[in-house]
């Protein structure tokens, strides 16, 4: 699904330049549950931004579903983000002036899903992430963990192929972290959604199938893990 070849990202301004990603070669397949791990400043967010088509690499080739991303116009990129990729960011995930339900519906509204259908899907998804009763609350009226769940709900309600989550649990307590992870794992297993997320949190890393260790903009290690819970049915979706 994603194939990165010799991706480099250099941030440069008048005074200095910073080589953030160095010759990254990476392939991510459909249905994977991958964590990009690494210390702060190692380039995780930058890599996810490039994979999520929010930013362009300085050099290198990015194939998405066998298409060269560099050839897409910015409108085409916006369409792919809207239709195929769900995002969960570390912060600033939600529109503060929209309720949890409206936030969840938003992407479907961009893509023109009918009012009735998108509302129904949004409510179902919010219920699935355990926030059915909070659907009319504004982000400021929700806890950090609840906000991240809304973000996950929004990311998956539009039925993407891929969910990119940048340190989704960084601001969460351990209980919220656990339930959010349960949710994502079950979505991966039930719907086959590909998950890529970044984290340096061991609790997150141990739930992944594959961990890519990043350091100073380079891939240090790429390990396939035998996950304890993999393959077992989860309770989150059915509750």
């Amino acid at each position: 699904m994603i194939k990165l070849t010799k991706i480099n990202k250099i941030f440069a301004d008048k005074h200095q330049s910073f080589h953030c990603l160095k010759d990254i070669d990476l392939t991510i397949n459909q249905g994977e549950f991958t964590v990009i791990a690494g210390p702060s400043g190692s380039g995780k967010s930058t890599l996810l931004n490039i994979m999520g088509m929010l930013d362009k690499p300085t050099s290198g080739n990015y194939q998405f579903d066998d298409n060269d991303v560099a050839k897409f116009s910015s409108n085409k990129l916006a369409d792919i983000r809207r239709d195929k990729i769900g995002f969960v960011f570390q912060a600033y995930n939600l529109m503060p002036v929209l309720t949890a339900l409206e936030n969840t519906e938003m992407i479907m509204e961009f893509s023109g899903v009918s009012k009735k259908e998108r509302k129904q899907r949004a409510i179902e998804t919010l219920e699935a992430v355990g926030l059915g009763e909070f659907k009319n609350r504004f982000p400021a009226q929700l806890s950090g963990g609840q906000q991240q769940r809304v973000a996950v709900a929004r990311a998956i309600a539009a039925k993407p192929l891929l969910v990119i989550a940048d340190e989704p649990t960084a601001n969460l307590d351990s209980q919220s972290t656990e339930s959010l992870l349960d949710l994502m794992v079950s979505l991966n297993e039930k719907l086959g959604i590909t998950f890529i997320f970044s984290s340096h949190d061991p609790r997150v890393i141990e739930r992944a199938h594959r961990v890519i260790h990043l350091q100073d903009g380079k891939v240090m290690r790429d390990e396939q893990l035998e996950n304890v819970t993999a393959g077992q049915p989860q309770a989150a979706m059915s509750s």
């Binding site: 916006a78 600033y92 938003m106 929004r154």
Partner: peptide, 13 residues
Amino acid sequence: KELCLLKALGLKG
């Protein structure tokens, strides 16, 4: 940041 979020989520220029 909000406008960037909207763009990230697929809103066109």
